[in-house]
Computed example of a mutant assay.
Amino acid sequence: MPMAVGVIETLGFPSVLAAADAMVKAGEVTIVYYGQAESARLLVAVRGHIAEVKRAVEAGIAAGEQVKLGAVITYYIVPNPPKNVETILPIHFTEESEPFRMS
């Protein structure tokens, strides 16, 4: 099955935590990256099958927007990212994420 990457950027840690939690509970996805974009903006990236990533990102957006004083700034889903993008950007499975990889 084709793989995808989904990214959500939030304002504040509570929003990114709620989004990440909702994403892994809503779909068979693996968190492959978490980091600070700038200032109080944080992002989390997940990988999985396209349908699972779409479902997970939708749940993450809803959860991140429910956090008081937090906000979802932006999100994006990339179906079938090419190998050169996967190699350069931090969206690939790593040794840390591999034990949690969904199929």
Rank of each mutant, 00 (worst) to 15 (best):
L69P: 00
A51H: 07
G6D: 03
M102E: 12
T87F: 06
A62Y: 03
G60H: 01
S103L: 12
Q66D: 15
V57S: 03
K54I: 00
A20D: 04
L43M: 15
A63M: 07
L17I: 14
G27Y: 00
E28K: 13
V53Q: 02
S97L: 02
P81L: 04
P82E: 10
M1A: 15
R55H: 00
S97D: 09
A26H: 06
V16I: 14
P90M: 05
G12M: 07
A18E: 12
P14W: 04
Q36L: 14
E95G: 11
R55Q: 02
A26E: 04
E28C: 11
M1R: 13
R47T: 07
G70L: 05
A20H: 08
S15M: 04
V29Q: 04
A26G: 08
P81V: 06
I73A: 10
L89V: 14
F100G: 02
E86N: 06
M23I: 06
P2A: 15
V5G: 01
A51D: 12
Y33R: 07
Q66H: 14
V67K: 04
V24G: 07
V24W: 05
D21F: 09
H49M: 10
K54E: 05
V53E: 03
T30S: 02
M3V: 14
K54Y: 01
V72D: 01
E96Y: 02
S15E: 01
A18W: 09
V7A: 06
A59K: 00
M102V: 12
E98F: 05
V32K: 01
P2T: 11
I77P: 04
E98R: 13
G12F: 13
V46A: 11
R47E: 07
E86P: 00
Q66P: 01
P14T: 07
V16A: 15
L89I: 12
A62H: 02
L89Y: 11
K68Q: 14
L89K: 11
A71M: 14
V78F: 09
M1E: 12
V5L: 05
G35F: 08
G27R: 02
V85I: 15
I91F: 02
E65D: 13
P2Y: 09
P82S: 09
V16Y: 07
P81E: 04
V5T: 08
A51P: 10
G27K: 03
P82T: 08
V53F: 02
V16H: 04
V29A: 11
L17D: 10
R41F: 13
A45V: 12
G35Q: 03
S97K: 07
E86Q: 08
P79T: 02
G70M: 05
I8T: 08
G6E: 03
I31D: 06
F100L: 14
V78H: 05
A71Q: 15
V46I: 15
F13E: 09
V24F: 06
I73L: 15
I73P: 10
A22P: 00
D21A: 05
T74G: 08
T10I: 09
L17C: 11
E96M: 07
R55I: 00
S103R: 13
S103F: 08
A18V: 11
A20K: 06
L11Q: 12
G6N: 04
E96P: 02
A59G: 00
I77D: 05
A37D: 06
A45Y: 02
G27T: 03
V32H: 01
P90E: 07
